[in-house]
């Protein structure tokens, strides 16, 4: 809930890439979303973490 370290943007992307195939999908989705946003000029939709917060149960 409150990590005192910043997750630097560059490092976050690498944690996805370094995960192999599963992570590669994340990287591609991020890249596609950015390209779409640039083409359409619309800002990328925000991620609502609180709405999905059931972290005490299991994997997400």
């Amino acid at each position: 809930m409150f990590s005192y370290l910043d997750a630097a943007s560059g490092s976050m992307i690498i944690t996805a890439i370094a995960g192999g195939m599963a992570g590669l999908g994340v990287a591609v989705k991020m890249w596609t979303a950015r390209v779409k946003s640039k083409i359409t000029g619309k800002p990328m939709p925000e991620f609502d973490s609180s709405a999905e917060d059931d972290s005490s149960s299991s994997h997400d």
């Binding site: 976050m12 996805a16 192999g20 992570g23 991020m30 979303a33 994997h59 997400d60």
Partner: peptide
């Protein structure tokens, strides 16, 4: 980036794979 990564599926399984 944090929101973008989460929205794109950067979840526990991906982090575990890393």
């Amino acid at each position: 980036i944090k929101s973008q990564a989460a929205k794109s599926g950067l979840n526990a399984q991906v982090l575990d794979a890393t």
